[in-house]
Design a protein around this nucleic acid. Sequence first.
DNA 1: TTTACCTATCAAAACGTTTCGAGATATGTG
DNA 2: CACATATCTCGAAACGTTTTGATAGGTAAA
Lengths: 372, 372
Amino acid sequence: MKPRPTIQDVARATSLSISTISLVLNNKAHVSEETRRRVKQAIRTLGYHPVRSARGLASKASGNIGFLLADEHFSAVEPFYTRIFLGSEVEARNHNYYILLTTVPTRLRKNESIPRFLHEKNVDGVIVAGKINHKLIEYIGKLGLPIVLVDYALPGKRYSSVLIDNYKGARVATTHLIETGHSKIAFIGGDPDHPSIAERFAGYKETLTRYGMPIDPSLVITDEEDTRIHNGYNAIERLLNRGGKPTALFAANDAMAIGCMNYLKATGIRIPGDMAIVGFDDIGLSSHVEPPLSTVKVFTEEMGKIAIRRIVEMIREKTQHVFTVHLPVELIVRASSASRVPSPSKRKTPISLTRRPRGPAIAEGREKNHGA
Amino acid sequence: MKPRPTIQDVARATSLSISTISLVLNNKAHVSEETRRRVKQAIRTLGYHPVRSARGLASKASGNIGFLLADEHFSAVEPFYTRIFLGSEVEARNHNYYILLTTVPTRLRKNESIPRFLHEKNVDGVIVAGKINHKLIEYIGKLGLPIVLVDYALPGKRYSSVLIDNYKGARVATTHLIETGHSKIAFIGGDPDHPSIAERFAGYKETLTRYGMPIDPSLVITDEEDTRIHNGYNAIERLLNRGGKPTALFAANDAMAIGCMNYLKATGIRIPGDMAIVGFDDIGLSSHVEPPLSTVKVFTEEMGKIAIRRIVEMIREKTQHVFTVHLPVELIVRASSASRVPSPSKRKTPISLTRRPRGPAIAEGREKNHGA
DNA sequence: TTTACCTATCAAAACGTTTCGAGATATGTG
DNA sequence: CACATATCTCGAAACGTTTTGATAGGTAAA
């Protein structure tokens, strides 16, 4: 079996020097069109492909992007972060990068569990999805690697983030419930330390206030440990047992909303007749539960793509701009929140509340640059 | 900022040669304990980490494993292959490998879409999950890279595979339906080209025959294009419209089973009263639909782990053993198949059919070696 | 005509490891 | 005691690129 061709072989075949081949390979200037053509031709006929390790060693760039994910997120039933990852993977390939995904324990132990690739110079930048130990993020920062956080932000604007417009999503969801005739609207939350959850709660409160409605603490649960299905179940059980009497319910995410539905169905409370429900995220499951769950759709793949575009920019330009992108969201009305009283005269049906994405609006999300 | 230490620095610090440091780094023999200790100490105090690219260039091993997944699988609602990947990722880390995941178009176009890492010598082996174009698999084989297929096998035993024991799973599921009093049991399938689906169908038929029951073509659908939710919906609709009158239904996977449930609920057919249902896979969704779906559980993470162990073996030993592993499965009885008639005297409840995994039984799956 | 500055190419020096063969010392054998 | 063998260590040669600085030739400006 013939050994694979090296850049040497291409040089010989074209009677050019190695350097020139390299210039063509990297699309650098100062190469005549004629030469470029000849080199490309030779590369094709020889079936030459540069070896990644060699490039990496010489150029001090690995061609990889690290993707960090808390293990509990990845193993959750809902493939929320998985979809973000998927978007990243596709976009990374477009930019000729590969992704090294690794999960990290939510509670970071010794230095032992720090991903190897950070030390081995095996990634050129890192994407961190979801809530991860601050220490670790700062550690990566100190290593001098570009970082982009997805669906998470540290206080102090020191790291770039791709975020969901949680605030607006919560407002749209709450408004929808109010406009379909509800006045006693519960909020079910969890992991109050997570900025996203806090923002959704804030949006809920702000909307009630704007409509002149009180914020009734007996209708609010925000202290569940995390936001998984069983916590939704527990939360609504506690809320009802202590005497809360909501007619509608806004859950911090779909998983909790579905947990709530499970409890309500088990106790004979009808949805949406006795209780209208709106969730957040639009995970795949939501359209397949009974009744289908109204929710605020998050464009997860898009988040992954944007994160990649940003980190590639940071890597290429070696500039450490800190930016924040907020992705727009979209209310999706399904059966779990069908209107309770006839809608007000002007509006035909609550479904008109749906905010259609405006073409490529996704990529336009409001975006800010802070400092340089 | 200080430049990161290289192997040179460690050599200087210990007054040893670079070669000796390398020997320690790779846990090779012929190094005295004393020396080994000193070197490790120096490495720690200097904070030295070998650079991946340099190792790769010198040793001709990238330290990466490629993970190939058909795009349609990865973007499916159910995170079936995602869980396989998760298992792989964890196990790969244990063996000091990283995984480069990439999706490939189900229908492979030009050479264009062949994953770059195959040519760039950037992976030491490849795991292929699910059904992927034969040509591509063979192409990888020709490149001389070790391959392990997961949940897929090519005819001819030329590639190693980690498989689900579909045949047994289907038999257990069908038996469960028969023993709870059903005699008209439908089979809903899709993508008949996929070996897994074919095996499940075979297990279904075999069981009916064993019980002396006819295989009624009017109760069988196997020609849906793939196995996603909406195909289950379409399939059962077709089956019922053309006059099939089953009292129970075995679907080739949970996604299709759930599609069936959606159709049945929409048309007022009660589950399990009018129709008992059993699926296959035990995806996360299954325990959260109403009623919860009986199914045959597949240990997905475990499959990923086994695949990694095998490919690491192949890489290390450079031997090209072809092997096949069949992972055991487990029947999980939930409300969608509660028994229809009182169970036979001896058996208290159909739940006793559940096959508990026997401790670490997972790793014991029947395993065969073919040739060397 | 000189000066200055482009363009296209090249030779050689990195990049940080692993590996190979050899040397030096210690250990065992007849 | 001589010789073979085993253990430990080392110098030097890969590995296949990118990058840097130099050179030769050409063109435009002074």
